[in-house]
Design a protein around this nucleic acid. Sequence first.
DNA 1: AATATAATAATAACAATTACTATTATGTCG
DNA 2: CGACATAATAGTAATTGTTATTATTATATT
Lengths: 135, 135
Amino acid sequence: MSRSSKQKEAMLRILRRTTSHPSVDWIYEEVRREIPNISLGTIYRNLNMLKAEGAIIELSFGGAPTRYDGNCQPHYHFRCIKCGRVCDIDGQVNGDLDKRVAEDSGLEVLGHRLEFYGFCQDCGGCKESNAHPDR
Amino acid sequence: MSRSSKQKEAMLRILRRTTSHPSVDWIYEEVRREIPNISLGTIYRNLNMLKAEGAIIELSFGGAPTRYDGNCQPHYHFRCIKCGRVCDIDGQVNGDLDKRVAEDSGLEVLGHRLEFYGFCQDCGGCKESNAHPDR
DNA sequence: AATATAATAATAACAATTACTATTATGTCG
DNA sequence: CGACATAATAGTAATTGTTATTATTATATT
């Protein structure tokens, strides 16, 4: 079905080697260093394909711009409300939660999203500044 | 600072008396029954004001259109991935979670968002249909 | 190599939200 | 009360993030 392309391969490679949970724009800029005339539409199409194949994870929470994660192991995230940075949270994903909610509510629960928010190390001390808006 | 207006009062009243976690468009339509020439910009501006004042809660998860909740008691939600309906989940909000994550990570954790997803009662049996897209 | 078609680049279209601006409403203070 | 300062509004334009369209190019298969 799905054919390979150097655009798709470059995107996946870039997503695999970063842990910064990049935005669409960041990915676009990064791929353009290899493939200068790549189209933004291709970025969006391939992100959706890779997501559908389960190769990457989409992080779209709380109205903030969507981020992508090349790490497919289930894990939670922290988002800095000052600079937007997204970090991984160590620790177990709670699978029992879904079961408990399903039993209590009668809903067919397939999963949950959990995101922590607050100030990251860089922003905690200086809540006024707005450094690193894209990390 | 903030002055009253019949538009703002109508919006808050409407949000207080529903439990359907309405979308911007639903709120717009509903307020227009009272104030037919209200502007959509006013809806957005007042939603942001009411949110900033802590009078309402914004639910924007997973790329789906933003919903608003006039119930400010901390609680979790379930979203049907078929029809988009949002329901409240009974049960305690886990405040210790934030503390544990903060201790483990060194981040200044202010809170977390948790949303369950799956099929609601109406959509569980007939996953093909797409009834009630706006509830 | 010839062929079928998936993927692409470039652009247009779209939907959700915000910004702008002239006008109207609200609260204050003499 | 009635004038005044200004917050809020309606209407519109602009912006942003994303998807659709289309002619062209690249990939895989025979």
